[in-house]
Design a protein around this nucleic acid. Structure first.
Lengths: 135, 135
DNA sequence: TCATACTGTAATATTATTTATTACAGTACA
DNA sequence: TGTACTGTAATAAATAATATTACAGTATGA
């Protein structure tokens, strides 16, 4: 992925974890990340759908963690922003070529075992582990 | 990464491995992958720089593997096409925010250990292992 | 020695993806 | 009932990836 969604999501969750149980507004969060508030709201919505965040509408509204940071794995965050393919997109090879015809199947299974390794590694750390590194 | 370079490089190397020790032209390879020959030549050049491929210019020229496919790890291929950051780019957070100021350092080290896990997994298979899966 | 079939590479155009911006409806509070 | 939020759609702008065109350089072999 060439986008910054993982970094953005992690930043959002770090802020929420650090200022728990305060409700933080998307404008405040966007100011810290230095991106557009609409992007933040979209990502918050997504993290909400994945059960990591709770939001409250209306005046004095905002967002907070849906569960303690010790219960949020970094792999949960990855899964929430997971790109279609970790190692990039595949091509649409020539079906007339015996290699071209088969390669995407093999690439797919390769990608999924590679991603599995990544998820295992990310799953070994919690959001709390990550935020504790901040001085 | 949103690009198809890993898939392209793997496709190139698979073709070369399967037809060793023949010299394959970029036009032939591009026909199998179904992308522009110039992209193939660029990637071949890159794989050459990484010691995976040998090329011969002029008439009847083309490319072949620089070493047996049993000696090429899938992680070597990843390293050759490695994007700046596996998990996407980071933001340029607000330095006035105590979290924003530090987060990129922590994200960087997180990314590098995640990538390390991926490389280990890819390093457990050779190009020969991959090409042997083709029927 | 010259036509041919390649690689190598630069320059540019096109397309796809990502991010930013604008706008506004809906909600809760005080 | 004004104010400060979320939620979301629509669109624009910026960036990244791929395709295309063009041509110089190189080796082969007729």
């Amino acid at each position: 992925m060439t986008n910054g969604r993982f970094a953005t999501a992690l930043h959002i969750l770090t802020l929420l974890a650090k200022q728990e149980p305060e409700l933080l507004s998307s404008a405040y969060i966007a100011g810290s990340i230095n991106i557009n508030p609409v992007l933040v709201r979209k990502e918050i919505r997504n993290l909400q759908n994945h059960g990591l965040i709770l939001s409250k509408e209306g005046k004095n509204g905002g967002s907070t963690l849906a569960k303690p940071s010790t219960k949020i794995l970094l792999s949960d965050i990855y899964q929430a922003v997971r790109p279609t393919t970790l190692l990039g997109r595949s091509n649409t090879p020539n079906p007339a070529c015996p290699i071209g015809k088969q390669i995407n199947t093999h690439i797919e299974s390769l990608y999924s075992s590679a991603e599995e390794a990544l998820i295992q590694q990310l799953g070994s750390q919690t959001l709390a582990d990550f935020t504790n590194r901040f001085s």
